[in-house]
Simulated scan of single mutants.
Amino acid sequence: MIPSDDDVAVQPAFDELGRLSFAEHSLESFLQRVTALAAGVLPGEPVTSLTILGGKRPATVAASGDLAQRLDALQYRRGAGPCLTAASTGRTAEIVDTRSPSEWPEFAAEAAAAGCGSVLSFPLPVRESVAGALTVYARQFTVADRRTRELISRFADYAVVPISNMYLYESALERAEHLAAALDSRAVIDQAKGVLMERFKLTPDQAFQALTRVSMETNTKVRDIAERFVRTGELSGF
């Protein structure tokens, strides 16, 4: 099968997505590279953004230009728009012509005034806990163009794999850091308990209660109380 011109155009971007190393990128720089690649392979020199739903509010985790950031933020303030609809419903949302929109007329008017002619938000296929959308803000073409829609769809389908994997990688790192911190805290607390037990002939429970009492009285974490006691031999209030 002879590859189409579009296949030839987008394959380098797909190849680079496959080569992106999690260890060499922060989550922010990784996602920023994804939006830059999207803007680079789509026709008409668009600006693109990635919206992720999570926590208390949506967030633009990466954008290829200031216009995309501003138009995303406008939708967040209004609580409605293509990127929010695509991210929350899993369905493509679009404004074919911002001068004559069928939905979101107030947002469309502001987008048109900012120089955006059309908008297409394509949902990222759901992977694990990642729900979001890739949004294209176009100046020189309309989202009704079949070629553009197919390219965006292919890119989003391909990009969701490394995006989801990067989120999982970051989550695993965070869990590992929390576990390491918990183990460190437990070790120093056990050390402080041992000193208290030997010095004051306390049981393990009594030693821990002494640490927690000082913690509550001083509004200080038990770990910090234990670390200071091990270092200085002083336990204020005991």
Rank of each mutant, 00 (worst) to 15 (best):
A113K: 12
A138K: 03
Q69I: 09
A59E: 15
Y137A: 00
A159M: 02
L151W: 02
C83D: 14
A80S: 14
A133N: 03
L124A: 04
R139N: 04
G90K: 07
A87F: 13
G55D: 12
R57G: 08
A131S: 14
Y137C: 02
E110A: 12
E128S: 15
S129G: 05
R146V: 07
V143H: 04
R127N: 06
G81V: 11
A62I: 11
I95A: 03
Q140I: 00
L71G: 00
T142N: 05
T60I: 10
L120P: 00
F155Q: 07
P125S: 05
S102W: 04
S118L: 04
V136K: 00
E94N: 04
P105N: 10
E150R: 13
S100A: 12
V143F: 07
V119E: 02
T92G: 02
C83H: 13
I152M: 14
T148A: 11
G65L: 00
R91C: 06
R149L: 10
D72R: 11
D157Y: 14
A133H: 05
F122V: 04
S118M: 03
I152H: 06
R127L: 10
A113T: 07
F141C: 12
T142D: 06
R91L: 14
A87Y: 10
L71N: 00
P58H: 10
F122H: 12
F155T: 07
A114E: 10
A62Y: 03
W104V: 03
R91Y: 08
V160H: 12
A68N: 10
P105Q: 04
F122K: 05
R91Q: 15
V130M: 13
A156Q: 06
G54W: 11
S88P: 07
V96R: 08
A159H: 13
R78T: 08
S153P: 00
D157M: 09
A144Y: 00
A59Y: 14
L74C: 09
W104R: 03
L124F: 15
A93I: 03
T135D: 04
A63S: 15
Y137W: 04
S88D: 15
V160P: 09
A62S: 14
T89L: 11
E110I: 01
V119L: 02
V160E: 12
S121A: 15
Q75L: 00
G132Q: 07
Y76S: 08
R127Y: 09
T142F: 07
V96F: 05
T92N: 09
Y158W: 10
L124M: 06
S118K: 08
T92Q: 13
R78V: 04
V119W: 01
A80R: 11
A112P: 05
T92I: 15
W104F: 12
T60H: 13
V143P: 02
A109Y: 05
R91P: 10
T60V: 06
L124G: 07
D97R: 02
